[in-house]
Amino acid sequence: MTTQIQLSDVFSIGLHHRFQWEDAQQNYVILFPEGMVKLHGSAGEILKRIDGKVSVGEIVEDLKTTFPDAEDIESDIMGMLELALSKGWLRKV
């Protein structure tokens, strides 16, 4: 899959979708009509930074600083954002 996401892109949570922390599950979730996606660890860390304002590049830098030991973090982030975009969990601002 060729990446269509640019570091300058800005995303927000998809229309009719909601992102929230679930205490009972100890993870973030995305909710939509009659469905839910559970976001473990890094997926939650990426999506919680999506606010309709910061760019993908800023998120990458932020995560690199927060998790200095993580390898190949940029491609993980891009992969996650691709998936989220294709599923409609995110939309481009």
């Binding site: 979730v29 996606v37 559970k38 473990h40 890094s42 998936l83």
Partner: peptide, 17 residues
């Protein structure tokens, strides 16, 4: 549906094993 290490989707609803 989607299945990778970070995201679990199962019939629209995740399950815990």
């Amino acid at each position: 549906m989607t299945q990778n290490t970070n995201v679990q989707v199962n019939n629209g609803v995740s399950t815990s094993a």
